[in-house]
Design a protein around this nucleic acid. Structure first.
Lengths: 210, 210
DNA sequence: GTCTATAATTCGATAGAC
DNA sequence: GTCTATCGAATTATAGAC
């Protein structure tokens, strides 16, 4: 549908989202002012309202832009695991869940840290912002929970739900702390990311079965 | 040192902290205005600045008031585990870490949910607020990491550190989600809290050893 | 210690020219 | 689509009477 007309996306709208994403990640929604956004994005204040309508809609646009490719890849990996009606292992399911968030955007090292921190902080936002994030990932979350239920049929749905919740918590924590002194993810080299995913899966899998 | 002179603490300073704590928990620091605080606390705006000096100092006061008894009990439980030079099990260490945060304030059901959500959101606050929280728990965190190192002497310090980080993440998540539909903690009955701690320890312990 | 009143600033949003 | 200019409201913080 879209043609590649330039190597770098310097469109005003995308530029605003990129800066807002980073500031939301660092300071949260309420702690970020539109004036800071336009200052760093080098655009006019009125442009924000022209393109997005409001600060909250800008937040929604930022969430959608970074969430969609991740959810897409999560569901693709999950479908791949279930080809031919197979029931995947817990390890395979968790790997499919964690990989897109941590690896997908690793092409750009700076971007990965921004995105991971943005996602980490998104889950801590108060309503109605949290719902924006939750809704965007809802389809993927339900699909993973369904597959987990089939991999562990003798566990109750409610038990699987809160354990799954802790997996998400671990993912968010790893993302939030990325780059800090004693964090699991120290650098964004593809090899280091894959190693981190592997260690995370080893940490979490036994608990899912306990 | 202190005498019990009244059944309820209606002191202005304590009243302000109590309301601020709840609002910080629900909306975060930047999302909470002093005017909302004084409105619900039914005190004057100037009283906040008289007692605390600034909004940030009010936050610091709130963090200290709820963190100190928790840290105190954490360290007491840890010392108790090590009596006679024993090396505790991983399960015992994790139980000592999780219990005070989840159980200590369970005498007052409403207060427990406020405190757990406050602590959960504190860790998502941007600097310099996050450092206030981290500093308050630093002594306890280091002590637990030291004991874990003795319980698992063949693990590297850095590996223990990020795994310990995930334990904290699980605790924070359980606290943040407390009371919500599919959360581990649905009610604040002492029995339910203890059961939740037990399940959490079972979930996390195998991962610590993996 | 508590209050009223207000300073000084900053916020999100909008109007209207180009 | 982008800009300047500004509105109206909300913010933290302070001054000064009681």
């Amino acid at each position: 549908m879209q043609e590649i007309v330039s190597t770098t996306t310097t469109d005003t709208k995308e530029q605003i989202i990129s800066v807002a994403e980073r500031l939301f990640a660092e300071r949260g929604f309420a702690g970020t002012t539109l004036r800071t956004v336009i200052g760093e994005a080098d655009v006019n204040l009125a442009a924000v309202h022209y393109h997005f309508g409001s600060k909250e809609e800008l937040f929604r646009a930022a969430v959608k832009r970074f969430a969609r490719p991740i959810v897409e890849q999560e569901l693709a990996l999950l479908a791949q695991l279930q080809e031919g009606g197979r029931v995947p292992t817990v390890e395979a399911i968790l790997t499919a869940l964690l990989t897109p968030s941590l690896e997908f955007l690793a092409q750009d090292k700076e971007l990965l840290l921004v995105h991971t921190q943005f996602m980490g902080r998104c889950w801590a936002e108060p309503e109605p912002l949290k719902s924006i994030v939750r809704d965007e990932f809802a389809a993927s979350m339900e699909a993973f929970l369904d597959v987990l239920q089939r991999a562990l049929p003798d566990r109750s749905r409610s038990q699987l739900a809160w354990k799954f919740n802790l997996v998400i918590a671990a993912l968010i924590r790893v993302q939030s702390e990325a780059g800090q002194p004693l964090a699991l993810i120290q650098c964004t080299e593809p090899e280091a990311i894959r190693s981190a995913i592997e260690q995370l899966v080893k940490f979490l899998s036994p608990g899912m079965r306990s």
